[in-house]
Amino acid sequence: MGVREVPLLGDQHTALPTISLMSVWEYVGIPMIFLYTALIAVPHDMVEAARIDGARSWSLFWRIKFPLIAPQFALIVILTYIWTFNGFDIVYALNGSAPGPNYSTDILGTLFYRTFFGSSGQVADLDLGATIASVIFLIILITTAAYVVVLQRRIRTYQL
């Protein structure tokens, strides 16, 4: 009995999850470096004082370390959210401008590319392409601004 080969990019049910896992692997390095540098910047005096007071490792992280690295964590969340909209490169590298099996790997970036530049026999539509790019920009702008406003309110409540 041989090994069954699964066409991960050729099946509409597995194509987008496969590309998503590849994207996670591609973009995991920078957030890990940010978190690592934030964690090593936590003052050792605070950690040692919490340990002397009897804090266990889990409460030490959530009550001492995480509040101190929260600004870096917020930055990582914002950057990761913006980078997800730049997922065009990996989809294009794996599928070209074609939207994958039954449009299963079509994201806003590839839709913009196919519409604005035209591909696979599709005529370029500059107006619709510019509209798609504007919608992508507005989605990123509104959600990032809302996240920052909510984050600023939380920070103000902690400071009072």
Results as ranks from 00 to 15, higher is better:
residue 144 T to S: 09
residue 130 A to I: 06
residue 72 Q to Y: 06
residue 65 K to L: 04
residue 71 P to I: 00
residue 135 V to L: 10
residue 118 G to K: 08
residue 74 A to G: 12
residue 97 S to Q: 14
residue 114 R to P: 08
residue 79 L to K: 07
residue 149 V to L: 14
residue 68 L to G: 03
residue 99 P to Q: 11
residue 59 S to G: 00
residue 60 L to K: 05
residue 118 G to V: 10
residue 84 T to I: 06
residue 122 Q to A: 14
residue 80 T to Y: 00
residue 120 S to C: 04
residue 112 F to Q: 13
residue 77 V to N: 02
residue 102 N to A: 14
residue 143 T to Y: 07
residue 87 G to N: 12
residue 68 L to C: 10
residue 131 T to A: 15
residue 102 N to F: 13
residue 106 D to R: 15
residue 79 L to N: 12
residue 94 L to D: 05
residue 101 P to Q: 06
residue 72 Q to I: 11
residue 85 F to C: 05
residue 106 D to F: 08
residue 77 V to K: 04
residue 153 R to H: 11
residue 126 L to F: 10
residue 92 Y to G: 05
residue 106 D to T: 09
residue 86 N to F: 15
residue 96 G to E: 08
residue 68 L to A: 05
residue 131 T to P: 00
residue 114 R to F: 10
residue 65 K to R: 09
residue 142 I to M: 13
residue 94 L to M: 12
residue 101 P to K: 09
residue 84 T to E: 12
residue 113 Y to N: 14
residue 137 F to V: 10
residue 66 F to W: 01
residue 97 S to N: 09
residue 86 N to A: 13
residue 115 T to V: 11
residue 56 R to L: 04
residue 98 A to T: 13
residue 74 A to M: 07
residue 128 L to H: 05
residue 146 A to D: 02
residue 108 L to V: 14
residue 141 L to C: 11
residue 125 D to C: 03
residue 132 I to V: 10
residue 134 S to R: 08
residue 60 L to Y: 04
residue 85 F to V: 07
residue 56 R to K: 15
residue 113 Y to G: 03
residue 111 L to G: 15
residue 99 P to R: 11
residue 59 S to N: 13
residue 132 I to R: 01
residue 127 D to Y: 11
residue 91 V to W: 06
residue 97 S to P: 07
residue 130 A to W: 08
residue 94 L to A: 15
residue 144 T to L: 00
residue 131 T to K: 02
residue 125 D to H: 05
residue 149 V to G: 01
residue 156 R to D: 06
residue 79 L to H: 04
residue 109 G to F: 07
residue 146 A to G: 01
residue 57 S to W: 08
